[in-house]
Amino acid sequence: MNAPLPPPTRAEQQALSAPFLIEDEELVRAIARLADERGTPMHEIVALAIADYAHRHSLASPAPEWLRRFWNEHPMPLPSGLKADKRFYDSLNDEE
């Protein structure tokens, strides 16, 4: 019997609201080269890389339960994509 999927996380909701786009040309070329060498579609190369990363990450010691609870209760904001203005922040501290 298939269990229902858990509700999507904030990051998943944001990712699902727009198509996934890799803007790093060098990374896209690396994926394409590997796909050509292996005769595998590019999306499968990405899926295999994610599965491998998740597997290696699962081998690391997990965070303590109290810390996982804290992260769930106080999630970090999603990246805005905006660049920080170093001159502005330096001016707050009277730096040049």
Score class of each variant (00 low, 15 high):
residue 63 A to L: 15
residue 22 I to V: 12
residue 40 T to W: 04
residue 94 D to S: 15
residue 81 G to Q: 02
residue 32 A to G: 13
residue 65 E to D: 11
residue 25 E to G: 10
residue 34 L to I: 14
residue 96 E to H: 12
residue 21 L to W: 01
residue 83 K to G: 01
residue 9 T to R: 10
residue 74 H to W: 14
residue 94 D to I: 15
residue 67 L to M: 08
residue 15 A to W: 08
residue 29 R to E: 15
residue 66 W to K: 11
residue 79 P to K: 05
residue 53 Y to T: 12
residue 15 A to H: 08
residue 63 A to E: 14
residue 88 F to D: 05
residue 96 E to Q: 12
residue 95 E to Q: 11
residue 88 F to C: 07
residue 74 H to L: 11
residue 91 S to D: 12
residue 34 L to W: 03
residue 45 I to D: 06
residue 85 D to H: 05
residue 25 E to R: 15
residue 55 H to L: 10
residue 74 H to P: 00
residue 19 P to C: 07
residue 9 T to W: 00
residue 52 D to C: 06
residue 38 R to W: 04
residue 39 G to F: 05
residue 61 S to M: 12
residue 42 M to R: 13
residue 2 N to P: 14
residue 55 H to C: 02
residue 6 P to M: 06
residue 74 H to V: 05
residue 29 R to G: 06
residue 43 H to G: 10
residue 7 P to A: 04
residue 17 S to A: 14
residue 59 L to W: 04
residue 58 S to L: 03
residue 79 P to G: 02
residue 53 Y to V: 06
residue 24 D to L: 02
residue 78 L to Q: 04
residue 81 G to M: 02
residue 47 A to T: 03
residue 49 A to F: 10
residue 17 S to R: 15
residue 42 M to L: 11
residue 86 K to A: 14
residue 44 E to N: 15
residue 74 H to M: 08
residue 39 G to P: 01
residue 64 P to L: 05
residue 20 F to D: 00
residue 73 E to V: 00
residue 64 P to W: 00
residue 42 M to Q: 10
residue 55 H to A: 13
residue 52 D to F: 00
residue 62 P to A: 12
residue 94 D to G: 12
residue 18 A to G: 09
residue 78 L to G: 04
residue 93 N to K: 14
residue 49 A to T: 09
residue 69 R to L: 08
residue 20 F to R: 05
residue 54 A to P: 01
residue 51 A to M: 04
residue 1 M to F: 08
residue 85 D to Y: 04
residue 69 R to C: 03
residue 69 R to V: 03
residue 3 A to R: 15
residue 34 L to Q: 13
residue 4 P to F: 11
residue 9 T to S: 14
residue 15 A to M: 13
residue 56 R to H: 09
